[in-house]
Structures are given as structure tokens and as C-alpha cells.
């Protein structure tokens, strides 16, 4: 008569012994949620500090031609698509939002400004970097010509591969932010974002969006492909 009771009690004890594990698992789950939300909030703080540190007049180092990364080292990151939805023949850049002259601008119009050539370091968020020879139109020249409202806070850009990203206006109008259409004195290749990409040496590489299709000037804070997944919104360097 004693045996079954014993068995049951042992089972119950075992079960009770396990219960803290169940509780712990529960705690662990909610703790992870709390940690994630804490880190996300803290990231808003680091983004804020980066915005304060950012000096719109501070230029990234421009390297000599000897220091330029050889063209074999002109890297493409692993997330790029092979077939961006870009019509090279009829490409145009759409400008929307808080500008005097919204509309579509042709490649010729984009290229009609003084060309800036610069050897600046492209720093990927992964840690690698390279110094390509970029060439293009200063974003500030183009944006002034379309009558940008410089008091607007944000700029969002959209790309041919469904990529999108975003900037504060002062970063976007920085003297070294390019509507880049050349690399190494040649038209940008498709894999590097042809016909026009952003190059922004004051930010991590994921802000230098390829296959640019659209620029939207806005006062509502936009998101970005990586930014929405946990990467820094400001991404200054």
C-alpha cells in the first residue's frame, strides 16, 4: 500500500523541484524583454549624444591618391541584392516633401552641378573600412537647387532594392555628402549602386544608400531598414 503513495510523492517532489526552473524560464523571458527595452531606450540616449557631438562643419579626412584602396578592394557588403529594381535607361530621382520644386530629376540634371571628387573612408558598421575615390554632386548643391526647406528636420531616402534610410537635415547637407555617380573616375557600377547613390563619410556605411530613387524632406522622424531593426538611428562616426 505504501509503494504507490511513495511513487506519487516522489513525482510531486520532482515536479516541485522543477517548478523554480519553470518560474526562472518565465522570469528569464520577461527579463529579456526588459533588458531589450532598456537597451533600446539607452540607444536613444547615445543617438542624442551623437547628434550633440556632430559638428556640421567638421570634415572627414580626405586622403591622397596614394592612400586610396586599390580598386580590387572596393568592397560590396553581403546584404546587397544582385538585381535592384532600377531602370538604368529611364532613371530619375524623385524629390518630395518640404521643397519648393518637388518632382522628378534626370541623371543629367543631377550631374549638372560642379563635380566633387573625394577620397574618404567608408566605415562599415561591421568594422571593416576602405578609402574609395568617390565622385558626385554635393547633396547641398542639389537640394538648394530644388528649394529645400532647410528648417525641415529630417530627410528620408528610398532605393531600388527596397532599402530605405534617414538623416537629420544637417547631416544630409554636410559638405561631403554626395549624390555619388562615380567611383575611381568611372561611372558607378551596378553593384555599387548605379546610377546614383548616397555617399556620406560622416556616417556608418548603412547610411550611404545605393540605387537612390527618392528623397523625401519631412518633419516626421523617418525610420530605416537597419535602424528599425536595432541599429543606431544617427550612426555618426
Amino acid at each position: 500500500m505504501n509503494e504507490p503513495t511513495k511513487t506519487i510523492s516522489v513525482k510531486r517532489r520532482k515536479l516541485l523541484q522543477l517548478s523554480p526552473l519553470v518560474l526562472f524560464a518565465g522570469c528569464d523571458y520577461s527579463a529579456k524583454g526588459n533588458v531589450d527595452s532598456f537597451l533600446t531606450s539607452f540607444q536613444k540616449f547615445t543617438d542624442w549624444t551623437q547628434e550633440k557631438i556632430f559638428d556640421p562643419n567638421k570634415l572627414a579626412t580626405e586622403y591622397s591618391d596614394e592612400e586610396v584602396t586599390p580598386i580590387e578592394g572596393f568592397r560590396v557588403n553581403g546584404y546587397d541584392t544582385d538585381e535592384p529594381d532600377i531602370d538604368m535607361e529611364n532613371w530619375s530621382l524623385t524629390v518630395e516633401g518640404l521643397v519648393k520644386n518637388p518632382g522628378e530629376y534626370s541623371l543629367e540634371q543631377v550631374q549638372s552641378f560642379p563635380k566633387k571628387v573625394m577620397n574618404t573612408r567608408h566605415c562599415c558598421v561591421e568594422g571593416w573600412s576602405m578609402i574609395p575615390k568617390w565622385g558626385g554632386t554635393r547633396v547641398r548643391d542639389f537640394m538648394k537647387s530644388v528649394g529645400v526647406d532647410e528648417k525641415a528636420k529630417y530627410v528620408a531616402v528610398e532605393c531600388g532594392d527596397d532599402y530605405f534610410t534617414c538623416f537629420y537635415m544637417p547631416s544630409f547637407l554636410h559638405a561631403q555628402t554626395l549624390l555619388c555617380y562615380e567611383a575611381y573616375n568611372k561611372p558607378l557600377s551596378l553593384q555599387h549602386g548605379a546610377p546614383v547613390r548616397i555617399v556620406m563619410p560622416t556616417k556608418l556605411g548603412y547610411k550611404s544608400a545605393k540605387w537612390l530613387n527618392k528623397i523625401i524632406v519631412t518633419n516626421e522622424k523617418p525610420g530605416g531598414y537597419w535602424e528599425d531593426q536595432g541599429y543606431d538611428w544617427f550612426a555618426g562616426i
Binding site: 540607444q43 562599415c124 561591421e126
Partner: peptide, 28 residues
């Protein structure tokens, strides 16, 4: 995410789950 030497660190010794999570931890 981009090793400077010829080795990677086993994930068990790392924090953050992926690059974005690790950066959030690092900057906190």
C-alpha cells in the same frame, strides 16, 4: 562581424545575439 585576426570567437563567449544587439550592449 569583421575579424581583424584570423579567428572568430565562439558565440558562447559573446553577448547581444547579433551585431545590432551587441552594439547596444557595448554602447551602454
Amino acid at each position: 562581424a569583421s575579424p581583424i585576426f584570423d579567428f572568430r570567437i565562439p558565440s558562447v563567449f559573446t553577448l547581444g545575439g547579433w551585431l545590432a544587439g551587441a552594439r547596444q550592449w557595448h554602447f551602454f
